[in-house]
């Protein structure tokens, strides 16, 4: 088990370094653009050069990257080009918003996908299965920003049930917090559930046709016991793997949803960074999202190992 964790950690570190360099290169691939966007189109060449020298942008990219990486590791995310404010503390303020949104959405996605997927598998090739499969195809084609718009149109404008956006910390006003979070979370969660329904269905069909399920039935197990005790756990291994990837997608999609619902999270910070060409902000927030996604994958890698007793004992 320890060997497994260590090798996963090593892979994680490598991935993080390569991923951060990809981000860094992606942001800096066009030289000089930072200065120009920070100072405006009609900035003089002298002003541009001064800005670049001031922020160390005139040095080779490798040197800039090394410096940025080193500072990032010590928790120094630099200062915003735009207003000189420290990026690090701002990130910390924004992270809980995005985490709450993503986790809330992920819970919704699973609450939809697990029962529907399992039920479809139990009714394999019958009407309910076909209906659920069609529903999954339909949901999978819905753009989440469109769903968000429709939700606002119905729940806010028509029924006046929920606020159109904004953010109140849970600790300040839990009810308001949930009211503001429900539509963003639904927009992300419902769309994410499409893939998860399919995965759960496929995994359960596979498991339900296996010999050990027949054994359980041969012992006189009720259908509920067959599904809950024997099938679900075995279907979880493939499911959790895909769900983790889906959580990554979901976490990346917060950018759009946070923008729509005016949530001050990391996602909208990415947009701030882009619109202002504020590279420290953009890099730091994109890296944070990537880091969270990678950490989730790491955890899942290790947890999936635990779900399957065959893997656990092999590594003991």
């Amino acid at each position: 088990m320890r060997g497994l964790i260590l090798s996963r950690l090593a892979a994680f570190a490598l991935t993080l370094i390569v991923a951060s360099s990809i981000l860094f290169v992606a942001v800096n691939v066009v030289p000089g653009s930072a200065a120009r966007s920070a100072l405006g189109i009609d900035a003089t060449p002298q002003a541009l050069a001064r800005f670049e020298a001031q922020h160390g942008l005139d040095r080779p990219l490798v040197v800039q990257y090394a410096e940025w990486l080193g500072k990032t590791f010590t928790g120094d995310f630099g200062k915003s080009f735009q207003n000189g404010v420290d990026v690090g503390p701002e990130l910390l303020r924004r992270l809980p918003v995005t985490l709450e949104l993503a986790i809330f959405a992920f819970i919704i996605a699973n609450l939809i996908a697990l029962p529907l997927g399992a039920f479809a598998a139990m009714r394999h090739q019958r009407a309910a299965d076909k209906g659920i499969s069609l529903l999954a195809s339909l949901l999978g084609a819905v753009p989440n920003f469109w769903l968000a718009t429709l939700l606002v149109m119905v729940l806010t404008l028509h029924f006046r049930l929920l606020p159109p956006g904004g953010y109140t910390p849970f600790t300040v006003n839990p009810v308001m917090n949930l009211k503001q979070m429900i539509m963003p979370a639904l927009s992300l969660g419902i769309v994410s559930s499409a893939l998860l329904i399919r995965i759960m269905r496929t995994a359960m069909i596979e498991v339900l046709s296996s010999d050990y399920i027949r054994t359980a039935r041969a012992k006189g197990a009720k259908e509920g016991v067959v599904v809950m005790r024997h099938a679900i756990r075995n279907a979880m291994t493939p499911y959790v793997n895909v769900a983790a990837v889906e959580f990554g997608f979901l976490f990346g999609s917060v950018v759009v949803i946070e923008d729509i619902f005016l949530l001050p999270g990391i996602g909208s910070f990415v947009l701030v960074g882009i619109i202002n060409r504020d590279y420290p902000v953009l890099l730091a927030s994109a890296l944070t999202i990537t880091l969270v996604v990678l950490i989730i994958n790491l955890i899942v890698d290790i947890v999936v190992g635990r779900l399957d007793p065959r893997r656990v004992t092999r590594h003991q």
């Binding site: 010999d211 050990y212 041969a218 012992k219 006189g220 005790r229 024997h230 075995n234 779900l307 399957d308």
Partner: peptide, 23 residues
């Protein structure tokens, strides 16, 4: 269902596949 496992039992063909790997 009440008869299965109680009055009529099956010992299936492939033991390895017939045991639940996670139990």
């Amino acid at each position: 269902r009440a008869l299965r496992g109680d009055r009529i039992a099956l010992i299936p063909q492939d033991a390895m596949q017939s045991l639940n790997p996670t139990m």
